[in-house]
Amino acid sequence: MAAGEQALGRVRAGWQGFVWYVKAVLGEDAYQVYLDHHRRVHPGTEPMSEREFWRDKMDRQDRNPQGRCC
Protein backbone atom coordinates (compact mmCIF):
# COMPACT_ATOMS: atom_id res chain seq x y z
CA MET A 1 0.00 0.00 0.00
CA ALA A 2 2.74 2.42 1.03
CA ALA A 3 4.79 1.34 -1.96
CA GLY A 4 1.83 2.07 -4.24
CA GLU A 5 1.38 5.50 -2.76
CA GLN A 6 5.07 6.17 -3.15
CA ALA A 7 4.95 5.20 -6.81
CA LEU A 8 1.90 7.40 -7.31
CA GLY A 9 3.75 10.28 -5.65
CA ARG A 10 6.65 9.79 -8.00
CA VAL A 11 4.37 9.78 -11.04
CA ARG A 12 2.70 12.95 -9.82
CA ALA A 13 6.05 14.65 -9.21
CA GLY A 14 7.24 13.55 -12.65
CA TRP A 15 4.12 14.96 -14.30
CA GLN A 16 4.46 18.25 -12.41
CA GLY A 17 8.10 18.46 -13.47
CA PHE A 18 7.10 17.86 -17.09
CA VAL A 19 4.41 20.55 -16.98
CA TRP A 20 6.83 22.98 -15.34
CA TYR A 21 9.41 22.28 -18.03
CA VAL A 22 7.07 22.68 -20.99
CA LYS A 23 5.66 25.92 -19.61
CA ALA A 24 9.12 27.30 -18.90
CA VAL A 25 10.46 26.41 -22.34
CA LEU A 26 7.46 28.06 -23.98
CA GLY A 27 8.10 31.13 -21.82
CA GLU A 28 4.85 31.05 -19.89
CA ASP A 29 6.66 31.95 -16.64
CA ALA A 30 7.79 35.33 -18.03
CA TYR A 31 5.28 37.32 -15.96
CA GLN A 32 6.23 35.51 -12.74
CA VAL A 33 9.90 36.18 -13.47
CA TYR A 34 9.13 39.85 -13.95
CA LEU A 35 7.02 40.02 -10.78
CA ASP A 36 9.74 38.39 -8.66
CA HIS A 37 12.31 40.75 -10.07
CA HIS A 38 10.09 43.78 -9.55
CA ARG A 39 9.33 42.92 -5.93
CA ARG A 40 13.03 42.57 -5.18
CA VAL A 41 14.33 45.62 -6.99
CA HIS A 42 11.49 48.12 -6.75
CA PRO A 43 9.68 47.18 -3.55
CA GLY A 44 6.72 49.38 -2.76
CA THR A 45 6.00 50.33 -6.37
CA GLU A 46 3.15 48.92 -8.38
CA PRO A 47 4.21 46.29 -10.98
CA MET A 48 2.54 46.04 -14.38
CA SER A 49 -0.59 43.91 -14.46
CA GLU A 50 -0.37 40.60 -16.30
CA ARG A 51 -2.17 42.07 -19.32
CA GLU A 52 0.06 45.14 -19.41
CA PHE A 53 3.16 43.00 -19.05
CA TRP A 54 2.35 40.80 -22.04
CA ARG A 55 1.49 43.82 -24.18
CA ASP A 56 4.76 45.43 -23.21
CA LYS A 57 6.65 42.22 -23.95
CA MET A 58 5.18 41.98 -27.44
CA ASP A 59 5.89 45.65 -28.12
CA ARG A 60 9.51 45.13 -27.10
CA GLN A 61 9.76 42.24 -29.54
CA ASP A 62 8.37 44.55 -32.23
CA ARG A 63 11.13 47.05 -31.59
CA ASN A 64 13.88 44.48 -31.24
CA PRO A 65 13.28 41.49 -33.48
CA GLN A 66 15.04 38.22 -32.70
CA GLY A 67 16.15 35.72 -35.30
CA ARG A 68 14.90 32.21 -35.68
CA CYS A 69 17.19 29.75 -37.23
CA CYS A 70 16.98 27.95 -40.50
Partner: peptide, 25 residues
Protein backbone atom coordinates in the same frame (compact mmCIF):
# COMPACT_ATOMS: atom_id res chain seq x y z
CA UNK B 1 18.85 41.71 -14.51
CA UNK B 2 15.71 43.55 -15.64
CA UNK B 3 13.18 40.77 -15.27
CA UNK B 4 12.59 40.87 -19.03
CA UNK B 5 15.41 40.30 -21.50
CA UNK B 6 18.06 39.75 -18.88
CA UNK B 7 17.07 37.15 -16.35
CA UNK B 8 18.84 34.11 -14.99
CA UNK B 9 17.07 31.06 -16.39
CA UNK B 10 17.20 27.46 -15.24
CA UNK B 11 19.91 25.77 -17.33
CA UNK B 12 17.63 22.93 -18.49
CA UNK B 13 14.97 25.40 -19.57
CA UNK B 14 17.52 27.58 -21.36
CA UNK B 15 18.83 24.48 -23.12
CA UNK B 16 15.34 23.87 -24.50
CA UNK B 17 14.99 27.54 -25.42
CA UNK B 18 18.32 27.67 -27.16
CA UNK B 19 17.69 24.43 -29.00
CA UNK B 20 14.28 25.62 -30.20
CA UNK B 21 15.89 28.82 -31.46
CA UNK B 22 18.74 27.16 -33.38
CA UNK B 23 16.93 24.14 -34.82
CA UNK B 24 14.73 24.68 -37.83
CA UNK B 25 14.25 23.21 -41.28
Amino acid sequence: ADGKDYHATDRRVLYGHHFAAIAGA
